[in-house]
């Protein structure tokens, strides 16, 4: 582990950049995913079609293709930004489809009888949503949504490999190709960096799951 410890400061910088990608992408993909999910369950047919189109496009395209598209396609539409921007944007677009599906399946898992019961005791639409449907939906959403987010943490490595400077992956690249370190120890260091993010995230998710679990 010598080479890793020698370059610990580089690793820490890389770790922080990776963390920033993750945080931005998490907020972005949750918001966008919720929006797309709202489209998919809305009563307006074209919005539903748009949501379905969005999900089947981004779920079935490899993240690498989405990233290439962002970096090479968007400049043709007059959008010129850094690779960091395109990388994070690609990750957000890709992850939003999975977030949408997790949220939608959570909403659909609440049985129609629940909403009917809510209406029959006199709750109106907002009240039924607020007190009956959403509390149950959110609980079912947590486990799949959590694993989508953790998968996104791991996918952020692809964004690094795509060429966002200064993150954990490019730290490893710089050390192996420019400074001639051996691949194995350097990339084990990179892997440890990601484990420092994914393992605690998995543990936190388990705790949350246990807290919100409901017997059905």
């Amino acid at each position: 582990m010598g080479p890793v410890l020698e370059n610990l400061d580089l690793y820490v910088d890389g770790f922080l950049t990776s963390l920033s990608i993750i945080v931005v992408a998490m907020v972005g993909s949750l918001l966008l995913g919720l929006l797309i999910a709202a489209c998919r369950v809305s009563p307006v047919p074209p919005l539903r079609a748009f949501g379905t189109f969005w999900v089947s496009t981004f779920r079935n395209t490899p993240l690498s293709v989405v990233l290439f598209f962002c970096a090479f396609g968007l400049p043709e539409l007059g959008i010129n930004r850094t690779f960091y921007f395109f990388g994070v944007l690609g990750l957000i677009l890709y992850t939003s489809a999975f977030v949408c599906e997790a949220v939608r399946s959570g909403i659909n898992s609440v049985s129609a009888g629940q909403a009917e019961a809510a209406r029959s005791i006199g709750l109106n639409f907002t009240q039924g949503l607020r007190y009956v449907v959403l509390p149950q939906a959110l609980r079912t959403v947590v486990p799949p949504l959590g694993s989508v987010i953790i998968a996104m943490f791991k996918n952020s490595a692809v964004v690094g490999a795509f060429g966002v400077g200064g993150d954990l992956w490019s730290t490893g690249q710089t050390l192996t190709s420019a400074r001639g370190y051996e691949t194995l120890p350097i990339f084990i260091g990179v892997a440890i960096g990601f484990l420092l993010i994914t393992l605690p995230a998995g543990a936190v998710l388990q705790v949350i799951e246990r807290k919100v679990a409901i017997a059905r």
Binding site: A157, V158, A161, W169, T183, A191, F194, L195, G202
Partner: peptide
């Protein structure tokens, strides 16, 4: 351990 690792790193390694 393996579940926590990004697949791209495993492919690279």
């Amino acid at each position: 351990l393996f579940r926590g690792l990004p697949v791209v790193i495993l492919v690279y390694l």
